[in-house]
Design a protein around this nucleic acid. Structure first.
Lengths: 221, 221
DNA sequence: GTGTAAATGCTAACTAGTTTTCAATTGAGA
DNA sequence: TCTCAATTGAAAACTAGTTAGCATTTACAC
C-alpha cells in the first residue's frame, strides 16, 4: 500500500555491477534513522556517503528563518552524499529522514578504494553526476516556464516513478509545496484542480495518482 | 573597457596543470563564431567539447515558442560541452555565440586519452562537475527565495567576477532577464532601482557596476 | 474512547510579477 | 549623414502567486 517516494535514479550504487555493489554494501555499516532525524547538515565534513536501503530521505536546505528549500526526495536504492566528497567541500545540503529509514553508511576509504579498483566505476560516477546536472537544469527550466499545476503534475509523475495508475505517494502537501517551491495554499489549489479533473485523489499525508496519462497530458501544453 | 561576462569557473581546463593544458589546447582546432551563431544544439551528438579563448557564449534552451531559458553566460577560460560527453547522452542545451568568439574544439578522442593518461584529471573532472551541481542548486535556491532585485544583484556580482567597482558588463537587459528568469519589464524596474541607489549605471547593451559592496549588502537581507 | 499534534481546507487581502503596447534612444552600416 | 534595427523606458491592465488566519479533519499515543 505504501511506496517510498523517489525522484531520479540518483544512485550510482544501483548502477554498479551486482557483485561490486554487494561487496561495497557489505563493507558499509547499517544505520537506522527515525523520522525527522538529521542525517547530515550543511557544513559537516564529508567523510562518507549513504545508500538508502528502505524509507525516504529529504534533501534540501533549511534556512535560519525556517524556510525550507527541498531539492529532492530520495527512496530505496538511491544514494546521496557523494557529491561533497567528489567536490572536496563540506556538505552543502541538509539530509533529513522523511520516514523511519535504514541507510548504509559507506566511508570515504571504501569509496576511494572502489574508485581506484576499477576505471569503469569512475566512468559511472561521472555519468551519474552528469545526469544530476541535467536534472537540476530541467528543474530550473520547469520552474521558469511551467505553471504550478504543471509542475505539480510533473513532480507527481516523478514520485510515482514507473508505477501506473493507483500509485499512492506518501508525502504531505507541505512537503510537495517545498519541493515545487510554492506556498501550501497554491499547492492545495493545484491539487484540488487535479482532483476535480479526476487525475488524483487527496489523502491525509498522501496523494493517490489515478490517471497518469492525464498528468502527462497536462505537460504537453 | 569591455570584459567578457563569465559565471562560475566552469572550466576544468583552466584548472589543469599548465603543461597539460597547453598540450591539450594545442591538439584542438581553433574555430571562430560570429555573434548569434549556433555552436551546438539540443539533440546533437556529443563528439567534442569547447574551450573559450575569447568572447562569450550563451548556454540555455530555446523553446519552440521562442522563449529562452538562459542557464549561464560563459567567457574566456571557460569550458562547455563536456557534460553530454560524460553522461553519454546527446546535447541537452543550446550554445550560442553571445559575441564574436574564438573557441578551441577538443574532440572526444583527445578528452578520452587525457582521462586515461592521468587519474588526477578524472579527479579534477569529478570535482568541477560537483561544483556545477552546487551552482545549479544555488541557482534554484536563489530563484525560490530571493526577490528580483536580489537575484539581479547576485547575477551582476557573478558577471563582474573579481573586478571591483567600475566593471562594465556587456549584456543586454533582455539577456539579463532571460538569465534571471523574469520579464524584461521586471528586470528594468529592478535595474532602475539599483541605479537610483547608486549601485549601478545603465548603458546601452551594458551595465556599469559602481558599488560592489552595496550589491553584496542587498543579498544579506 | 480521549486528548493532542499534525495535516488539510478555505477565505480574504495583498503583492510581485506578467503581458501588451508604444515611444524614445542608441549605434552601426550604407 | 541618413537610415534602420536593436535596445531601452514607461504606463496600464491583468494574473498568479503570497501571507495570514482560522476552522476542520485525521491519526496516533495514552
Amino acid at each position: 500500500m505504501s511506496r517510498p517516494p523517489s525522484l531520479t535514479g540518483t544512485g550510482f550504487v544501483s548502477a554498479l555491477p551486482e557483485t561490486v555493489r554487494r561487496d561495497l554494501l557489505a563493507r558499509g555499516q547499517v544505520r537506522v534513522f527515525q523520522k525527522g532525524q538529521i542525517i547530515q547538515q550543511r557544513g559537516d565534513r564529508a567523510q562518507e556517503f549513504w545508500y538508502i536501503e528502505s524509507g525516504s530521505v529529504q534533501i534540501g536546505r533549511y534556512a535560519i528563518d525556517g524556510r525550507l528549500t527541498l531539492f529532492t526526495l530520495l527512496g530505496a536504492g538511491d544514494t546521496f552524499g557523494e557529491l561533497a566528497f567528489m567536490g572536496e567541500f563540506t556538505r552543502t545540503v541538509d539530509a533529513i529522514a522523511g520516514t523511519r529509514c535504514t541507510l548504509i553508511r559507506i566511508g570515504d576509504r571504501e569509496l576511494q578504494s572502489l574508485i581506484e579498483s576499477d576505471a569503469a566505476v569512475t566512468r559511472l560516477l561521472l555519468k551519474t553526476m552528469a545526469l544530476t546536472v541535467q536534472d537540476a537544469l530541467n528543474l530550473i527550466e520547469s520552474s521558469r516556464n511551467l505553471s504550478v499545476p504543471q509542475r505539480l503534475a510533473q513532480t507527481l509523475l516523478q514520485l510515482c516513478g514507473n508505477q501506473g495508475d493507483g500509485a499512492e505517494i506518501l508525502v504531505t502537501q507541505q512537503d510537495l509545496a517545498d519541493l515545487i517551491g510554492v506556498s501550501r495554499v497554491s499547492l492545495g489549489k493545484a491539487l484540488s484542480g487535479l482532483e476535480s479533473a479526476g487525475s488524483v485523489e487527496r489523502g491525509y499525508g498522501s496523494v493517490l495518482v489515478q490517471d497518469v496519462a492525464a498528468l502527462r497530458d497536462l505537460l504537453d501544453r
